[in-house]
Write a protein that binds this DNA or RNA. Structure first.
Length: 760
DNA sequence: GTTCTAGAAC
DNA sequence: GTTCTAGAAC
């Protein structure tokens, strides 16, 4: 009796008698559909007093009678308490007497847990402790028979409200709704979430006929169904295995195959439950002690962004306990913002066992990693590495050695890992958030300005990594996932691992080999890059320094200059000059007769945005070296004119100064972007940069992408030309003086004998 | 950064 | 036929 009378007195508002209408909520669902869990979770979170009436336990812990249930329910209602009727209630007759509990003062609701039969079966088998095939088969038969005879509730039976749940996210939505129901609140009346029953059966049967040669099994004859269901279960060593193993966002075909054919009327689930799903723990709020209010704001903000951008995918915030503060904060805020609860919801469970324990399919899980990407420690990190087995550590280490706050790293889960085989998780995304815990490395000392910024970046990076996985899976042959809101560049920038992932997914077993052959190809193609040294690790996370600004990750091809700067001695053939501060080399694809690069050798100086006052001396050195080389070339050819400057948003990592002759006489100058990157405000003269850094401590970056697609104009006479070939033929002949602004402050460098010709 | 490809525009 | 653009791949 005690179990059936759970009331969460602690959550009752103090000093306030509930005056709202009590409600009776009749749960409808097969054994294993999650009725009891639903009640327990609502009761634990709700501020409304609830009583759970459970026929299974009402007789002093043993199964009781319907009459006992009715008695118990009416006395609870008399106390002003709301009631859950926790029994199967699968047909109209079973429900009728409980519906009669309703009156003008008491509304009766139904919550229908119409989940896939297979899930209910596997849960019942698990719960009964009879894991053997025989018992499993019996459980399957029972559940199947019940479901076959089920009669979904209708409003006409006397319900004020019916909520249909067809998958875990529907359930979560209903949980949110009822948990948030205060003592005085009421819910809108009507039926919610109902599928069109006719259409569903039709589709289910159609699919089934396509799949099997013996349509006899579909028939409504109970004996057939039982047999086929039990033999089906008995065939499998572990009935839980089948779903997740074949689960994949892009294998629609497998998903249907996955459906138990006898469940045609129950189970064809084309809903969000099969959508790509990222389960993620709250970042930084646990060990890193980030403020929960602020963190929950950021989670909801970022989740909303994602939900608006990416359709057909779900985000699930997971925590171990329903007492989780961050979970309830996020839940409340997400509800307030009206975020689609099918696509973003919270879930109580172990993130490493979401499918096997919680029935929630998540193809991607996030790990709140440490910066060394080490398996140990505690909490989620330890749990995930432990559940995944050593293979995940190996796969992770192959990709990166460390992680910076605000960044994420996608690691495909090796097929040998139980996380893959048991839970259906294809990728783990490691993510590192800001640390507010003084006992941990890199504590931000309560600097929530920086902290919030980094936490935002962490979620942005996490969700975009997830998007890139979806995208890469969508590219697979059977993929049909749309990512309408995402520009290619956005997805690519944040994880160029996407193509890798898809490749690995296809040839998972060949991973190591394919990675090796890729490296070989890379070192041939990439002149001057020590790609042998560039493990995939650096691909995603090459920003060695983190300064709080949003940075894109560099692709492997963009690392060549960085490697040369770090190890110029390995590139003797390509390098013209080496000092402690700089390396000089010819641009591999010169856009003029002479085109050099002066590389800064400082680690962490990836681009102009990284430049600060402390680099002023280095900038001046780079300029002086550039000038020296320009003068050397001028001695060889006095007709040349040089310009020295930077690209604010370069494609190649590592700060580099262009020293380029203004003839632009080069076969490598092919595109508008090439021209405009040297002949619009996109090009920042070295002298101007030095001036800006001296006066303001950093470069003034104008982030105008349009500069690169501007019309083509001659850099001398400013005449416009429709195409690159036409422009090139013009500049080969144009002898107009350079514009006045270039003639000032030493922006142009030319031979003394040529000065008159340039400035005539 | 480049190459390659396909398709569209001229 | 040439040029441009966009996307994918490296």
């Amino acid at each position: 009796m005690s179990e059936s009378m759970e009331i969460d007195d602690a959550s009752k508002p103090q000093g306030e008698e509930q005056k709202g209408k009590p409600i009776v909520v009749i749960l409808v669902g097969a054994p294993g559909s999650g009725k009891s869990t639903f009640c327990e979770q609502v009761i634990s979170l709700s501020t409304r007093p609830w009583v759970r009436v459970c026929q299974d336990t009402i007789g002093n812990g043993k199964a009781g009678t319907k009459a006992q249930c009715l008695q118990s329910a009416s006395s609870a209602l008399a106390d002003g308490k709301s009631v859950f009727i926790d029994r199967c209630n699968l047909d109209r007759a079973q429900r009728a007497e409980f519906v009669k509990l309703g009156n003008s003062q008491v509304d009766v609701h139904a919550v229908v847990l119409d989940l896939p039969a297979k899930l209910c079966i596997s849960r019942s088998v698990k719960r009964s402790g009879h894991e053997g095939n025989l018992q499993g088969g019996k459980a399957a038969a029972v559940v199947n028979r019940m479901l076959q005879n089920k009669e979904l509730p209708k409003l006409s039976e006397g319900f004020a409200r019916i909520t249909f749940c067809h998958n875990e996210s529907d359930v979560q939505g209903a949980l949110n709704t009822y948990s948030a129901l205060g003592p005085l609140d009421t819910l809108p009346q009507g039926a919610f979430g109902q599928k069109n029953p006719d259409a569903k059966v039709q589709v289910g049967i159609t699919k089934f006929f396509k799949k099997t040669e013996s349509p006899a099994n579909v028939g409504p004859a109970t004996t057939n169904i039982q047999e086929s269901a039990s033999s089906k279960i008995a065939e499998e060593k572990d009935p839980h295995l089948k779903g997740p193993v074949s689960f994949s966002a892009n294998t629609g075909e497998k998903l249907t195959e996955d459906e138990d054919p006898v469940m045609g009327s129950v189970g064809l689930d084309v809903s969000m439950n099969d959508a790509p799903t990222l389960a993620f723990p709250s970042i930084s709020t646990s060990d890193f002690k980030f403020n929960h209010e602020k963190a929950s704001d950021i989670i909801v903000e970022k989740a909303e962004e994602f939900v608006n951008k990416i359709k057909n995918a779900r985000l699930v915030l997971v925590d171990l306990t329903h007492r989780s503060k961050i979970l309830s904060l996020v839940k409340a805020k997400a509800t307030k913002k009206n975020i689609d609860s099918n696509r973003f919801f919270t879930f109580v469970g172990d993130i490493t066992q979401l499918y096997s324990q919680g029935g929630l399919r998540c193809n991607v899980i996030a790990n709140v990693a440490n910066w060394r990407l080490k398996p140990g420690g505690g909490g989620v990190n330890a749990a995930i590495f432990s559940a995944a087995g050593p293979a995940l550590d190996v796969a992770t280490k192959a990709r990166a050695k460390s992680l910076l706050p605000g960044n994420s790293l996608v690691v495909p889960v090796p097929s040998t890992s139980p996380l893959f085989s048991r839970e259906g998780v294809t990728h783990v995304i490691h993510v590192l958030g800001p640390n507010m815990n003084p006992e941990r490395p890199n504590c931000l000392n309560n600097d929530y300005g920086t902290g919030c910024k980094i936490l935002r970046e962490a979620y942005t990076s996490l969700f975009e990594s997830f998007a890139s996985i979806i995208k890469s899976q969508a590219k697979l042959p059977k993929g049909t996932i749309e990512i309408p809101g995402f520009k290619q560049s956005e997805v690519q920038d944040h994880s160029d691992s996407a193509p890798r992932n898809s490749e690995q997914k296809i040839k998972r077993e060949n991973f190591h080999e394919s990675a090796r052959s890729k490296k070989c190809k890379g070192s041939q193609a990439e002149v001057g890059s020590d790609i042998s040294d560039s493990s995939a690790a650096k691909v995603n996370l090459s920003n060695e320094k983190f300064d709080g600004s949003t940075k894109k990750a560099w692709g492997s091809w963009a690392q060549a200059l960085y490697h040369i700067a770090m190890h110029p001695e390995k590139h003797k053939d390509d390098v013209l000059e080496i000092s402690d501060d700089i390396v000089v080399l010819n641009d591999l694809y010169p856009k003029g007769r002479r085109h050099l690069l002066v590389l800064a050798r400082h680690q962490g100086l990836d681009r102009l945005a990284d430049v600060r006052n402390e680099h002023l001396h280095l900038l001046k050195t780079m300029h002086a070296v550039g000038l020296k080389w320009a003068e050397k070339f001028l001695q060889e050819d006095a007709s040349l004119v040089f310009r020295l400057g930077y690209h604010p948003d370069p494609s190649m990592r590592q700060l580099h100064l262009h020293v380029i002759s203004q003839d632009f006489d080069s076969k490598h100058l092919k595109h508008k972007k090439h021209w405009n990157s040297f002949n619009t405000a996109f090009f920042l003269d070295s002298v101007d940069l030095i001036e800006e850094v001296s006066s303001q401590g950093k470069a003034i970056l104008k982030n105008d992408e349009n500069l690169l697609s501007m019309e083509l104009r001659c850099h001398r006479c400013r005449s416009a030309h429709p195409t690159i070939p036409r422009l090139k033929s013009h500049i080969g002949n144009c002898e107009a003086p350079f514009p006045a602004n270039l003639l000032q402050n030493g922006r142009l460098v030319c031979a003394p004998s040529n000065a008159a010709a340039v400035d005539s």
